[in-house]
Nucleic acid binder design. Structure first.
Lengths: 287, 287
DNA sequence: CACTGTCATACTCTGCAGGTATCACTGAGT
DNA sequence: ACTCAGTGATACCTGCAGAGTATGACAGTG
């Protein structure tokens, strides 16, 4: 059979990520031997070898890599099903299923657009309740995939719209945000090259799931930290034009001529059938 | 926890589709009581009521409908993971993972395009092996979703591209295929209205998962049957222009002026990472 | 008012997921 | 060369959960 229980998937994902049975077992809150057996059994059932046991740790085979990717998608779909079902629960009031949408937005981005959208939608007849869920850097995609959110504001080219349906809402240029006193702040416009290699102003490194990319810049994980570092003359940042909304007095914004445009979309899982979603999208595209 | 074992999902889907515990249990090859208990337990775990037990059959609650949709997507993702992993198995030859792609095409459609594509791709250096999988009416979507296929030729507006990545390959008009002797066959062009309500030529009804839509037309499930019925003067059909390739002598094709254009796309699951896929897509878009 | 169809409950049993103890093997250090 | 640490596999045992059988509760029907 091709049953593939979710338990087996969870187990395999843990091992594939840790590449170590002991640590994987610990992460799963179980002992190592049953984990080993479960994986063996999974391999036998699929008729495929997933891991190369090298006496010194473990590595993935080609089939293992495939299962790592496909399995993640499948697990996301499962937790999404659970979450969305729970959220729809207690429903069936006289006005149909309880109307509620979870909207994921990158924390701090598109304030103005978001405000307009929420106001316009709230004015609609029989508008659903919108819960705004602030998301970390580029995390909206995962939130849609695993059901934490029903719909999201995404920003191409930073977010990937692959696998979602979407409508374009807004296009804007990008600006460099510099310390007010910096020589470059006097320019009318700048290019990406101008701001990307300033020795005394290295680009900040954003936290991604707790780790930071390598480089000389300071480590940050929210916009306030970044704003402060810019104000102190320690770094420079590139942002969509709408970031002007939160600039400090110590900041100067200079348009970038050659930075790619940022396109804000409203996006949702392609198979979504939430009745309230259509109304929100209609409102959004009319803005 | 929000574990949601696939077994539970399968059980629920069966009940939600049959709306009858007994039949669902039979379909699952088990007795009815354990099924009842499993569903109850699922409802308790999710903290949500999924089914209304009406003493006379069963009906879905709002949350139940959500789980029916989301669960189908999740189950598809799981079987896709299993299938694709199996297919990648035995891999890891010296030339990297075994290169093989399964391409789903609507049986009989786009013959010429398909031929050109396969020839052009076969000429590429390190081309993967392409397995062509004929699919029933509009079934390519399901095949991509549950992993029976890796990539598909789809025809908008008949197929929905929602949830897939795709590239446009070809646009064509549509034609009416009439019995050669019919009065309308003498026209230069026709409109949809002209052919949709001819009393003596009712439109055929295609099989969809074994059932047929209601209507006066004959029931068919493959193109040859249809061709024969047209030749016999019993029905009329509307097809993309490329269907001219298989017309019989007893058929006459007349262009339709107001039928929507048919756009052929090559489409694949948005999260796909198959190395061979990129080459095929590149070849396809160059045609 | 018996009867049928339907889902729920009670009870039992078995298979398997999980734990503990231990083995087998390899590479490193002295 | 020998020991030791680290890692995954094996052997064996246990308890629970998932499956079966028998039966109950209830509603609609003729």
């Amino acid at each position: 059979m091709d049953t593939l229980e979710t338990r087996e998937l969870r187990y395999f994902m843990a091992v594939a990520e840790e590449l170590h049975f002991g640590r994987a077992a610990e992460r799963l809150g179980m002992a190592q031997p049953p984990l080993s057996r479960a994986i063996q059994q999974l391999e036998r059932r699929l008729g495929v070898s997933l891991l190369k046991r090298n006496r010194r740790g473990v590595s993935l085979t080609g089939a293992g890599e495939v299962l790592l990717h496909e399995g993640r998608a499948a697990l996301d779909a499962i937790t999404a099903a659970a979450r969305r079902t729970r959220r729809a629960g207690g429903a069936d009031g006289p006005g149909g299923p309880r109307n509620r949408l979870v909207l994921a937005v990158k924390a701090g981005a598109s304030h103005e657009l978001l405000h307009k959208l929420l106001d316009a939608y709230a004015a609609e007849p029989d508008a659903a309740e919108i819960e705004v869920l602030p998301s970390g850097t580029c995390e909206q995609e995962g939130m849609l995939r695993d059901g934490r959110a029903d719909v999201a504001l995404m920003h191409a080219p930073f977010n990937s719209l692959a696998g979602f349906d979407s409508e374009e809402l807004m296009t804007e240029g990008q600006i460099a945000i510099l310390p007010a006193g910096h020589p470059l702040a006097a320019h009318e416009t700048l290019s990406l090259a101008d701001v990307s290699d300033i020795p005394e102003l290295p680009l900040a490194r954003w936290s991604r799931h707790g780790t930071y990319p390598p480089g000389p810049g300071p480590e940050i994980h929210d916009q306030t930290q970044l704003a402060q570092l810019i104000a102190l003359g320690r770094t420079v940042a590139v942002f969509p034009d709408s970031a002007r909304a939160w600039l400090w007095a110590e900041h100067t914004a200079v348009p970038l001529t050659d930075a790619p445009s940022v396109v804000t979309h409203i996006a949702w899982p392609a198979h979504s059938r939430l009745p309230a979603l259509a109304g929100l999208i209609r409102t959004a595209t009319r803005l």
